[in-house]
């Protein structure tokens, strides 16, 4: 993927650039809001990583201008603001996701991957599949190898988020936000508990495991073993 990092802190920028490059992404870095806007408008990127506080033009204004110009490139904000309002403001301005500093690289990578335009299953799909697992979003039915698996609504949502990001790591934080709408860090193993319940229904009765744990990062659904 082509990623543009608009970040004025050179150390953070190179940390992101090197990390994403190691993962095979092609990364450009701009240290100024105005230059970043020009670059993001004139070139074609798959994901923009935008710092909220930038010299020249702040992150919110940058994204608003970009959206005003009709550019739909997915935007991931980086912020040290970390406040409860900042996320909402950022998303309202037209951003797509949000990571607060300091962040783990695994978290950033997972979110960049999830935002990428070449994500295999996006929006309009009504049936999500991996291996012999099939999720019908309209009928709300999950089958594995032909057997109907009875899932509770939240288990269904959890599996849906994992399936939409098939082959990619979804972090614990991403699951908390997307499945349970928790925008804080719970002190109990709520994610682990629900994953283990889901595994008991999806994987346990079958030969191959589809839900994998990416240690220190999160979970993924994949037919690779």
């Amino acid at each position: 993927m082509r990623v543009l990092v608009i970040e004025d802190d050179a150390e953070t920028a190179s940390y992101i650039k090197n990390g994403l490059a190691e993962e095979g992404h092609c990364v450009d870095v701009v240290g100024d809001g105005r230059d970043g806007l020009v670059q993001a408008t004139t070139e074609d990127y798959d994901v923009l990583i935008v710092d909220r506080m930038l010299p020249g033009l702040d992150g919110l204004a940058l994204v608003r201008t970009l959206r005003g110009a009709g550019k739909p490139t997915p935007v991931l904000y980086l912020t040290s603001l970390g406040g409860v309002n900042d996320r909402v403001q950022g998303l309202e301005a037209g951003g797509d996701d949000y990571v607060s500093k300091p962040f783990s690289f695994a978290e950033l990578l997972a979110r960049v991957n999830a935002l990428g335009r070449r994500s295999p299953m996006k929006g309009e799909d009504t049936i999500l599949r991996v291996a012999d697992l099939e999720m019908d979003l309209i009928r709300r039915v999950v089958r594995r190898g032909g057997d109907v698996i009875d899932l509770q609504p939240r288990e269904f949502r959890l599996l849906e988020v994992l399936l939409r990001n098939r082959g990619k790591v979804v972090t614990r934080t991403m699951l908390l936000e997307k499945v349970w709408d928790f925008h804080f860090d719970p002190k109990t193993s709520v994610v682990e508990t629900h994953i283990s319940r889901l595994r008991a229904k999806i994987d346990k009765p079958f030969q191959t495991e589809l839900i994998h744990t990416a240690r220190g990062a999160g979970y993924s659904v994949d037919d690779r073993i």
């Binding site: 409860v84 709408d181 928790f182 925008h183 804080f184 719970p186 002190k187 109990t188």
Partner: peptide, 17 residues
């Protein structure tokens, strides 16, 4: 809603922990 969820989650988690 987001904050109220956090309020009740904190209370329940405190009890668990």
């Amino acid at each position: 809603g987001e904050l109220l969820v956090q309020l009740f989650v904190n209370l329940i988690e405190n009890a668990i922990r």
